[in-house]
């Protein structure tokens, strides 16, 4: 009985691991543009937090304006590079997906 159970467990495991019908999901490869979009989202979130803290009265005007300008500059830099990459996309990767 023990041998039978062990044999069945082994067989089921081997089938599960090595029987791969159909296409595999490989997902898109991460590009620099995707990375920049993530950074852009982070900067937008920082801007959102800054605005909220200003409205909450935590920041004096001068601090708020200075921090906002530096974050907007950062966002603009990112957006500019994203725009450039979208205009001239790099060659497509082999990783397409089913």
């Amino acid at each position: 009985m023990t041998i039978f159970i062990c044999a069945v467990v082994t067989l089921l495991t081997l089938v599960y691991v090595f029987y791969l019908p159909g296409e595999l999901y490989l997902g898109p490869e991460k590009t620099r543009a995707a990375y920049l979009r993530e950074r852009k989202d982070a900067v937008y979130e920082n801007l959102r937090d800054l605005n909220f803290e200003y409205k909450a009265g935590k920041l004096p005007d001068a601090d708020y304006q200075s921090l906002k300008t530096s974050l907007q500059d950062e966002a603009a830099t990112l957006l500019a590079e994203i725009a450039r990459l979208e205009k001239n996309p790099p060659p497509a990767s082999r990783r397409a997906k089913a």
């Binding site: 620099r32 937008y44 801007l47 907007q72 830099t77 990112l78 500019a80």
Partner: peptide, 22 residues
């Protein structure tokens, strides 16, 4: 979810690229 208003993109000349991601 919250909606965020951000400035329209403007092209920036020769700024240092955002680090990493290359």
């Amino acid at each position: 979810q919250a909606v965020v208003r951000v400035p329209a993109p403007k092209l920036v000349e020769s700024h240092a690229p955002a680090g990493a991601g290359d």
